[in-house]
């Protein structure tokens, strides 16, 4: 079972207010090792330098969107199976289908609550201790 406090999580979200809220939500469920990135491009750079154990990424972002980031991570040798949860404002079938084709691990439709956030993370990485 992963230790929530040491699980390295990357939050990728272009809107600063939402990003800070996601990070504070993670802290509330016991996840304190969080890296913040403002778009997919910055996330990819950060990931190349310091890989994380879980990525929570928004869908709509400038430069590189959530699907683009997912595709890039899945194409990284040795990191193809990095747990990836997509955060979307819309549960559109076409988006979910594309994400599934890219082997997304799960997705969360905003606005979400702490229970949903924790359950989705646990469904992907296992029960947090």
């Amino acid at each position: 079972m992963p230790d929530g406090s040491s699980l390295r999580i990357m939050v990728v979200e272009d809107q600063a207010a939402m990003r800070q809220l996601i990070c504070s939500s993670l802290r509330q469920i016991g996840c304190h090792s969080v890296v913040e990135c403002g778009d997919g491009q910055a996330a990819l750079k950060e990931f190349s330098e310091r890989p994380v154990q879980l990525i929570l990424s928004d869908l709509n972002m400038p430069n590189l969107d959530g699907l683009g980031l997912l595709r890039a991570i899945r194409g990284k040798p040795g990191f193809e199976k990095t747990p990836f949860i997509l955060l979307t404002s819309r549960a559109e079938v076409s988006i979910v289908t594309q994400a599934k084709e890219l082997k997304v691990n799960n997705y969360i439709v905003k606005p979400f609550n702490l229970v949903v956030l924790k359950n989705k993370i646990q469904a992907v990485v296992g029960t947090l201790t």
Binding site: Q15, A17, M18, L21, S24, S25, Q28, N60, P62, S89, K110, P111, F112, N113, L114
Partner: peptide, 22 residues
């Protein structure tokens, strides 16, 4: 839950901003 409340507001603003960008 205060953060839930704020997440709802941020979501509403995000929908507006993303809609305009689109």
């Amino acid at each position: 839950d205060r953060s839930a409340s704020l997440r709802y507001g941020a979501y509403s603003m995000e929908l507006l901003v993303n809609g305009l960008l689109s």
